[in-house]
Simulated scan of single mutants.
Amino acid sequence: MKALQVVLGTRSERMAEPLPPRGFRVAAYVVLFLVGAAVSLCGAFVQALWPPFGVLLALGATGGVFYGGLRLTGTKLGAGIPLAGWFAVLMVMMAPRPEGDFVLAAGLTSYLYLFAGAVAGVACATLPTRTPLGFGAAGNDRQRPVKDPHA
């Protein structure tokens, strides 16, 4: 647990980090969408190529992109944008082609990759972050002064 805390940082350290400039975040969202799509494409082939280690490798890369996007941008959208790119590519690869071919076959590793990847993306997108408008801020960051009714 201590080693994981050193790598990921504590919650208070993450909440104290300043947000990157808006222009950087917008550019990062575009890049993260493309990286999420690329990880999805690679993961779809890797998970079937080396079972069961391939699915673990694909899920590790998928979770790393989602969490990396969260930490890079400091917003929940940083994890949601690569999830959207990941999901969009998977929807295309699950559709059968006119020839009858498809990339993601109905198998245990394919289903595990789809389910666990989606869970990882949603879990990363729900972690507490510091955003400029207070949306998603945890703790006492959003408390407003309370008016005294007796004053």
Rank of each mutant, 00 (worst) to 15 (best):
V46H: 03
L8Y: 14
L49Y: 05
G100C: 12
A27V: 07
A120Q: 15
C124T: 13
A105G: 01
D141Y: 15
P96H: 05
M91I: 08
L127K: 11
S40D: 05
L49A: 09
T126Y: 09
F115S: 10
P145Y: 03
V55M: 08
V30W: 11
L4A: 13
A151C: 03
G54N: 01
Y67K: 10
Y67R: 13
K147S: 15
M94Q: 12
Q5C: 08
M93R: 07
V92L: 14
G74V: 07
V6H: 12
A27T: 08
A106R: 15
G60H: 02
F66S: 02
T10D: 10
M93E: 12
A95V: 14
V92P: 02
A151L: 11
L59Y: 01
G80N: 08
A151F: 10
A3M: 10
S110R: 04
G74T: 06
A123T: 14
R144H: 11
T131I: 06
R14H: 12
F115Y: 13
P132Q: 11
G69K: 05
K147D: 15
F45G: 01
F135L: 15
G68Y: 10
L4F: 12
A48T: 01
D141L: 15
R14L: 12
V6D: 14
G136C: 10
P145I: 11
L8W: 14
G68V: 08
V89E: 07
L133V: 00
W86V: 10
V46L: 10
V92H: 09
S12A: 13
G80I: 06
A79R: 06
L108D: 06
M91C: 12
K76V: 01
F102A: 05
L112V: 09
P51G: 10
F135A: 14
V89Y: 07
A95I: 12
F24Y: 05
L19Y: 06
T126N: 04
G54E: 01
V103H: 05
G136R: 04
L49Q: 03
A138R: 13
F53Y: 06
P20R: 00
G78H: 00
G36P: 01
G136M: 08
A84L: 13
A137F: 12
C42H: 00
A79S: 11
R11Y: 14
P132E: 13
A38I: 00
W50I: 11
N140F: 13
V122Y: 08
G68Q: 10
G100D: 09
G107Y: 02
L72A: 10
A61D: 00
F24P: 01
G136N: 07
A48G: 05
V122T: 06
Q143V: 15
G36C: 04
P20D: 01
F115E: 05
C42R: 00
A37S: 14
P96S: 04
M1N: 02
R25L: 02
P149T: 11
T131C: 10
P96C: 02
A88G: 11
P52N: 02
A120L: 15
L114N: 04
M93Y: 06
F102C: 03
R97M: 15
R130W: 06
R97N: 14
V55N: 04
T75G: 01
R22M: 01
V35M: 03
V6N: 13
A27D: 06
V119D: 10
S12T: 13
K2F: 09
F45E: 04
V103N: 04
G43M: 05
F102L: 11
A125E: 12
P98S: 09
D101K: 08
C42F: 03
R144V: 10
T131W: 06
D148A: 07
W86Q: 08
V39E: 03
